[in-house]
Design a protein around this nucleic acid. Structure first.
Lengths: 219, 219
DNA sequence: TTATGATTCATACGTTCGTTTTAATCATAA
DNA sequence: TTATGATTAAAACGAACGTATGAATCATAA
């Protein structure tokens, strides 16, 4: 069956996604990946060329759809607004909500990819940051522009900073099922993981919007 | 001179701090560290025992003071409040402001340690997370309790989540002089780096407080 | 059925890793 | 000055790393 080859590729991507999430790029070996995928060691270099290329493909597989979806949602919002600025809450939901709702879709990587992405945004490896910056460039510019129009009274530099803070809060929130225990060592109330994800979205949205619309700092 | 030995230790700690910040734990080799420190390769194992122990010592050197200082500041605030709850803004400043103001003190690690800490909070290595969770446990519990008292009308679970979001926004903000460019590829206005740090504190504080006091989410 | 190109496989390459060992060198106290 | 313990130095260890090679196996089309 010629399905076998695409099968091998996908098995490698799935294993890489999970292992990079769990142990980081440098902390994951090709032997771990091929071992977990149940394929031969040489398969990664045959199908992807190198470990770096594999890492990039792990991200491209998910990010292409995500960022296109973000563009589509913002397009729809701007059409709907008919020339008026789009509401900040709608922009924030289009960017961060779209991301978080990926976590419920196992076909798009689910929580695994979400946590990988969250961790990778602070990853030190140079080629990963360069790759992500390139992948994100266009969608970032679109969303910044939308926020500039939505909040004309707020200095642009301030909006850029707050976008940055929102990215951080989100990355950390999704990266950290484990790191979370640093804060909630004794969980206040028990919630199963699906419940937690369902509630994370509104919780995070409230926080992000509160921060975005906070009074401007006095220097 | 018997100063030489403590000199070697410190040179290794400084080099480790900088390199772990720049390339991560797995991405930094002992040969890089001893090379940059200008000491023999075996010196790390002689003075610290292992690479893991060195990493822990890099953190302990800075975190011991930081978390004690956080305790002292909160102590003072609670004495000053004389039984009344401490204001949320004061609590947030005591926790995050104390951290950020470390960045201006080169004797306490400055920006290098701050960025290392920011990145490490999402670091995948198991032993690092376990170590940090242990180091942070007591101070976290104190600050959570203070926030519970300061915001009696907010459910405790919600406060814990928002503390978590604040940690994320802060980590990312300090980790990311490079990742920042992902958002601000063309900088709106030029600011030199000291200016940027001076302004980061009030900017971040406004954002954090806005998020902490945002309206509660509707489920 | 056979030829062909794609894929899988076992194996090995050269490097680099963290660590260990043994000897040389240093500072200090008797 | 000499003996002693602490530190530094050079060299090597086995293990694990990413990658490359060439043969075996597979699916497919002529």
């Amino acid at each position: 069956m010629e399905v076998r080859t695409v099968d091998t590729r996908e098995r490698i991507l799935d294993a890489g996604e999970r292992l990079f999430m769990a142990h980081g790029y440098e902390g994951t070996s090709m032997r771990q990946i091929t071992g977990e995928a149940g394929v031969n060691l040489a398969a990664v270099n045959y199908h992807f060329g190198s470990k770096e290329s594999l890492m990039q493909e792990v991200f491209r597989r998910r990010l292409d759809w995500l960022n296109e979806e973000r563009m589509r949602v913002l397009d729809a919002l701007e059409v709907e607004a008919a020339g008026q600025p789009v509401k900040p809450s709608a922009i924030v939901d289009a960017f961060f909500g779209t991301l978080l709702r990926m976590a419920g879709d196992e076909n798009r990587g689910g929580m695994t990819f979400l946590r990988l992405l969250g961790r990778t945004l602070t990853e030190p490896s140079e080629f990963i940051r360069a790759f992500l910056a390139h992948e994100y460039q266009a969608v970032m510019d679109r969303y910044k522009e939308a926020l500039f129009r939505a909040l004309p009274e707020v200095p642009k530099a301030e909006i850029v900073w707050r976008f940055h803070f929102m990215l951080g809060a989100t990355s950390y929130a999704i990266a950290g099922t484990d790191a979370l225990r640093l804060v909630t060592d004794w969980q206040i109330e028990e919630e199963d993981s699906t419940d937690r994800l369902d509630r994370l979205v509104p919780r995070l949205m409230s926080f992000l919007l509160g921060g975005l619309r906070a009074p401007l700092p006095q220097f």
